[in-house]
């Protein structure tokens, strides 16, 4: 199994490094966009998939990164400075938003984050002196390190790839620490997790804030990819798109965001239908998926991996634990 994994990593890395050399501009753009979405999806998977907190404000957090680089760039701040500022703002707002989230149950959290995304959108649209209002900001510059400039689409693809690698590695590092285990514990049995000393408050806040920070990074990389942003890029619809991405991929699985980002970015291209038809097919797919494959496309991926490595199918997923509710009822 180890050998297979190393081989897969090497092969994947080689493909990601080499294939942009042969892509035309539009496909290169799609590849870059997929990487940006991957970063965003990894963040949301941390928040929702691992710590079980629904966030419908991911596009709002993303906008902090986008606007940070778009506003700070012309002021002479280096691009990475913009990324750091945007990510920090997203992290801090993640903490702020995480707090009411602790007091309320998950269904309220959906509403709070949804509302937050709408407020962010309204502020972006109406704070014209800073954000350019509904006209947005255009001519967003791409990064350069001295003589090394990431101006061309291909060079910028590699720049994004670098960040994506960093994000994937850091997420892997976090999820394979005691934190990762605590997140899993919370998701598998929240009440029991609390009774083995897991501070739901600390971990949930951290999961929320780190997930939001990743959204900030993704947003910062997104703006120069399009070179133009306006508030319409950060609506609730986009937040829902990220949610679907993570759910389609497979919640709480490391592979999930990879699958989700690729499918959601490339599906409309493959269908070649008008946007309206695509959205109809997409929403139908989401409903069918919930009904028949609630664990996400990663379930199909697992099956394929098992086939390829000729391993016996790993034991079927065990039944869920008894509802905590049952324990807490008066005897």
């Amino acid at each position: 199994m180890r050998g297979w994994r190393a081989l897969g990593l090497l092969g994947g890395g080689a493909i990601l490094l080499l294939f942009p050399l042969f892509l035309e501009q539009y496909k290169l753009y799609l590849a870059s966009l997929t990487l940006v979405y991957l970063i965003l999806a990894i963040g949301l998977n941390l928040t929702l998939g691992y710590a079980g907190q629904i966030s419908l404000a991911h596009a709002g957090f993303m906008s902090f990164g986008s606007y940070a680089v778009a506003i700070l760039g012309p002021l002479g701040v280096p691009f990475e400075g913009g990324i750091i500022v945007g990510t920090a703002i997203a992290f801090l707002w993640g903490l702020v938003l995480g707090f009411p989230a602790l007091k309320v149950k998950h269904h309220y959290l959906a509403m709070v984050t949804l509302g937050f995304n709408i407020i962010v959108f309204l502020v972006l649209r109406n704070w014209e002196s800073l954000t350019g209002g509904s006209f947005g900001i255009s001519g967003i510059g791409r990064p350069h390190w001295g003589p090394l400039r990431f101006l061309s689409d291909r060079a910028y693809y590699y720049y994004i790839l670098g960040w994506a690698t960093l994000v994937v590695a850091s997420a892997y590092w976090i999820l394979h620490s005691r934190w990762g285990r605590a997140f899993r514990a919370i998701r598998e049995n929240e009440m029991r997790a609390e009774v083995v000393g897991v501070s739901l408050r600390n971990y949930k806040l951290m999961a929320f804030a780190i997930g939001s920070a990743y959204a900030g990074i993704g947003g910062a990389l997104f703006a120069p990819l399009l070179t133009y942003i306006d508030p319409g890029a950060f609506t609730l619809d986009r937040s829902i798109q990220f949610l679907m991405m993570v759910v389609m991929g497979g919640l709480g699985r490391f592979e999930g965001p990879f699958i989700g980002a690729v499918v959601v970015t490339l599906l409309p291209e493959l269908l070649r239908a008008s946007e309206g038809f695509y959205l109809i097919i997409f929403s139908l797919a989401v409903i069918l998926m919930m009904l028949f494959m609630p664990k996400g496309l990663v379930a199909a991926w697992d099956w394929m991996v098992c086939r390829l490595t000729r391993r016996t199918v790993s034991p079927a997923h065990p039944p869920p634990p008894p509802e905590p509710a049952a324990v807490l009822e008066p005897e």
Partner: peptide, 10 residues
């Protein structure tokens, strides 16, 4: 939640 979001879009 996810299914009803899908339904609303549909």
């Amino acid at each position: 939640v996810i299914a009803t979001i899908g339904l609303s879009m549909l």
